[in-house]
Amino acid sequence: MGDHIAKGQELAKRAENKLHACCPLFGSNLEDAAELFHKSATSFKLAKSWDKAASLFVKSAKCHLKLDSKYDAANAYVDAAHCYKKTSTSGAISCLNKAVTIFTEIGRHIMAAKYSKEIGELYELDQDIEHARSYYERAAELFEIGDAATSVIQCKVKVAQFCAQLQQYQKAIKIYEDIARQSLDSNLLKYGVRGHLLNSGLCQLVQGDFVAITNSLERYQDLDLTFSRTREYKFLADLSASIDEGDVEKFTRVVKEFNSITPLESWKSTLLLRVKDAMKVKEMEDDDLT
């Protein structure tokens, strides 16, 4: 461990000397400095000195930018971000952002999308849903430019989920329905349609417009003729009926029954809790009236 640090410091010193050398006649100093910074960063990485390694990767990236080798600069920023991930999320996000900008500039859209998605994941871990959504959205756009349809769908699914969590239900519904329509055209993706339609239906339920829910269920059946035979359809239909009847206990029983076979993700549970709370409020109002 100690020798890695010593080696790293030695290489860093040499890199700094190359950078501030007065006479750049003998060879390309910037190129050498970039390489030495990279080697130094790798040594610190081996010593698990993450912050130091990250800062040296950033220096290497700056040297590459001066040399106009943007691809190498972007990769150095990515390396820096992966070191920062261990200590500082904000540092990692900052470096990845720079990498995304460079990759976009040089037309490496899929690489840019990949790291944009990574930023989204970091924000998601930090529970910053708003930022996570915007970066996943950006990733989806970049994947679309790069012609990676499946990755576009995966990112859009996350965007829709975040929209639902942020109570932007109409947007979430639109995304889920679009994805379902797209997926039906593929022999491989058609099996995921029922899941997307379920998510869309749950967003409809939270809005609480019974007519809209009924219309949506009919529309989903027309969209995917096999949907009416699925457990997801029955689940949505039963939930819809229990909401219409204002029967909280039936609603709970239906959810529990579905959950016993297919465990619900936490965000779906949150949506259903919102529906239940609204039903309880409605029930109280009705009781007050009688």
């Binding site: 998601e124 871990l125 529970q127 849903i129 989920q161 969590q165 942020l166 206990e249 709970t252 959810v255 529990k256 993700e265 936490s266 965000w267 949150t270 809790l273 919102r274 239940k276 709370d277």
Partner: peptide
């Protein structure tokens, strides 16, 4: 009732991630 727990006063500003 699986809902009748401390979840009633849940803070809606905090969103749980899927992870």
């Amino acid at each position: 009732n699986p809902f009748d727990s401390n979840d009633e006063g849940m803070d809606t500003k905090k969103y749980s991630s899927s992870r």
